[in-house]
Design a protein around this nucleic acid. Structure first.
Lengths: 239, 239
DNA sequence: TCGGGTCATTTTGAATGCAAAATTACGTGA
DNA sequence: TCACGTAATTTTGCATTCAAAATGACCCGA
């Protein structure tokens, strides 16, 4: 188990909610589940704390970060900015194959929309946004986007949409694809911004907020069995 | 020596160039200089690697990250986007006292410009940009900006300017202050973007690039004495 | 002198051990 | 029964230790 794997594994356990937001990160359990000692685990926790996924309380261990309404808003605002920048750069730099690939993803996504397949729709949706960021050809931007978007992923890609929301989102994606094809950086930046701002409004409306996890609540305490289950899951979310 | 202090101390040694870009990070020396064992130092290095300030080579230790031309460009592009977002949000959220404080900083900065005091000019300049980000009232944005701007700080605030560059920069700052006073988010975002893009052009022109540090070069290897000197320096760059 | 190979030394990555702090459990008195 | 103080237990943070890998020193033959 390489160091980077430990960070990645834990990151996804946190993003996927295998470790409940606000709950303690059980060092001992995780060491056993991941078959590593405390040293590499603690190094990973420090890294994840820097990413904002966990909070470290001095002498009182780590807790899975809990998104407040304000925190979620902050992340969405930043993400809007990042996607806008990415869109602008992507229009200037996107290659033929990349454009081709995004067009295909778009068509596929529309298919899932028509079929009412929300899960696969969201997957294509996410891949399109990530492909635009990749097309911007900016490593720091991509890394920052990855980190920020991961933290709002559950809100963004899980909160239920009304039929109208969904229709509007697909229409916006038509605009995104068109702007890319026209290499209209300003236009794309604007659409991406609006697109995500709309999603943010949906999330706000739905009142998405992390569940509370009182310090000693047995109900929300992470079970060893569930951690071992989560630890077995490979890193599936990328690509 | 608290964990966060170790990270902060190392971060500034890297940003200030006390550890030459591309050179090995001497674990042993630093442990002695900071009076800590390898465990907390290695935790700090992992965090700094996540921030992009050092690169970790498996089984071959850590090296201070070296900015390539492309890497620097990427950082500037991202920073432009971050400042633009910050400016837009700041216009909507800035408080009276914050605006007052920025006005004062601006006046002070113009004074330093008139006096030809580049060092204090740069300091005010940086504080203004940081104040705008702070006024955006977005914690993740602020943290991201802090990280990104730190990495381009030396390029941004040290590269020599021509007299014309300087004059133009001051004029742009007049525009920044005016946009803030008018609460013109779009306008401010645009000026901030242009302002930083101009700086990027200056840096490109000056050909700022990190010095090479060949693996076994004694000339560029960090000396124990200089590390101990750097380690004594407190964290002075913030505020 | 130079190239290649072997062995000693150093450095890295991770596990273990230990002291300090925090948490929990328990007992006492009201 | 409940509040409070004390002791046992657990958890945390760091130092130390140990095996594996990499680095460098040395030697030999051409």
């Amino acid at each position: 188990m390489l160091h980077e794997d430990v960070v990645s594994r834990l990151r996804h356990m946190l993003i996927d909610g295998d470790i409940a937001p606000g709950s303690r990160v059980p060092e001992r359990e995780l060491c056993e589940a991941l078959r590593i000692s405390r040293t590499p685990l603690r190094e990973a926790l420090k890294v994840l704390a820097a990413e904002g996924l966990v909070v470290l309380l001095p002498n009182r261990g780590a807790r899975a970060a809990k998104l407040t309404r304000k925190g979620l808003q902050d992340l969405f605002e930043l993400c809007e900015g990042l996607e806008a920048v990415a869109g602008q750069l992507a229009c200037a730099r996107i290659t033929g194959p990349q454009l081709e690939s995004i067009s295909q993803l778009h068509a596929e996504m529309v298919g899932h929309y028509r079929a009412g397949d929300l899960v696969h729709y969201f997957r294509c949706n996410r891949l399109i946004h990530e492909a635009i960021v990749a097309a911007a050809d900016n490593a720091v931007l991509a890394a920052t986007y990855e980190s920020v978007s991961a933290r709002i992923r559950r809100a963004r890609y899980i909160v239920p949409m009304t039929a109208d929301d969904w229709t509007r989102a697909v229409r916006e994606h038509e605009g995104i694809l068109n702007a890319l094809l026209r290499r209209d950086g300003e236009g794309l930046a604007h659409i991406l911004r609006t697109h995500l701002a709309n999603k943010r409004a949906e999330v706000e409306t739905a009142g998405f907020i992390e569940a509370e996890a009182p310090p000693a609540s047995a109900a929300l305490r992470v079970s060893g069995a569930s951690l071992r289950r989560a630890a077995r899951q490979p890193d599936t979310s990328r690509g």
